[in-house]
């Protein structure tokens, strides 16, 4: 027990120290690297708190994909800002620090005073879970009990992509700095890693019904594969979104809406999922949408095409 407490305290202290270094560090590049490290430690903290679903999502999205996106953004702006120290405004920083500090203190104090409510939603979920046919409470909440929230999350992702496309305007797709696949080891990395990521993604998707995992984690892992393929030039960004691309990008949201509306037509309450098949269908569509959207955001493109085509 005591060893666990020591580990947790080290984790907590490391998180605070790292977050300080991220905002007060000297160079942009180091800040990004430290932020990725921060994400990994947050994932570890979730694991220590007994929330493997969140740990997986944080490691894959928070540390992995966000890191990749930031490094890509750094690359496109970095050349001229690299060595210039970031200008700090101590006055503004102080005001922000005091305000956020008081906010955290107020929330923390309020949280300390909270007593466990006897009929909390969590207990109700655990009681009702067997009726859903799902073994993983997180998936149950995401798709059944709070399905509308998850559906709107997919809408947010779609809007984010549309926003990025708008900003992109008529510009040619961003030039992705590629690693030549003929570079020793890189081609073999793709050959080895791409099938493994596919396998892991599908496993996470299927495992999500009964164990930690689900569409978000699976989509993030699949995006990892997509990022690798964009970086090695196996997938090339294009300036036009094809029909298949558009279809896949809205698939998650569309599956949610269609299944929900369909349930309404056949006499259930609207947005009811009438069986585990609906969960699998929606999760698969969500995984594909998430993966494609994130890969497109990474590639700064409207579409992707194979190397030869």
């Amino acid at each position: 027990m005591t060893v666990g407490v020591v580990v947790d305290m080290m984790l907590g202290l490391a998180l605070v120290a790292l977050s300080l270094r991220v905002v007060t560090g000297g160079s942009l590049f180091r800040d990004i690297v430290l932020f990725i490290l921060f994400g990994l430690l947050v994932a570890l903290s979730w694991a220590r708190l007994g929330a493997p679903d969140l740990a997986l999502a944080e490691a894959a999205i928070g540390a992995g994909l966000t890191g990749a996106l930031m490094l890509m953004a750094y690359r496109s702006i970095g050349a001229d800002t690299e060595e210039r120290p970031v200008r700090r405004r101590p006055g503004v920083a102080l005001v922000v620090a005091v305000l956020t500090g008081s906010l955290v203190a107020v929330i923390g104090l309020a949280a300390l005073g909270i007593e466990r409510v006897p009929d909390a939603a969590g207990d109700a979920v655990l009681e009702a879970l067997p009726g859903t046919g799902l073994g993983n409470a997180v998936t149950g909440v995401l798709l059944v009990f709070r399905g509308l929230d998850t559906m709107l999350e997919m809408a947010v992702l779609l809007v984010a992509l549309l926003g990025a496309w708008t900003v992109l305007g008529d510009a040619r797709p961003g030039r992705v700095h590629r690693v030549d696949r003929r570079t020793p080891l890189v081609g073999s990395l793709l050959t080895v890693v791409a099938p493994i990521t596919l396998l892991v993604a599908v496993h996470l998707l299927l495992a999500g019904t009964d164990a930690p995992g689900g569409a978000f984690q699976a989509g993030a892992v699949l995006t990892g594969c997509g990022v690798l393929m964009v970086l090695t030039g196996t997938l090339r960004p294009t300036a036009v979104a094809g029909f298949a691309t558009r279809l896949l990008v809205v698939a998650g949201l569309a599956a949610f809406v269609l299944v929900g509306a369909g349930a309404g037509f056949v006499g259930h309450a609207p947005m009811t999922l009438t069986g585990t098949w609906a969960v699998y269908l929606i999760e698969t569509a969500m995984m594909l949408s998430i993966a494609l959207t994130m890969t497109l955001l990474f590639a700064r493109a409207r579409g992707l095409r194979g190397e030869g085509s």
């Binding site: 690693v179 570079t183 020793p184 080891l185 890189v186 990395l189 080895v192 890693v193």
Partner: peptide, 10 residues
């Protein structure tokens, strides 16, 4: 191993 080898090489 694969990740370490490739990233170190690159």
């Amino acid at each position: 191993l694969v990740a370490a080898a490739v990233s170190a090489h690159l």
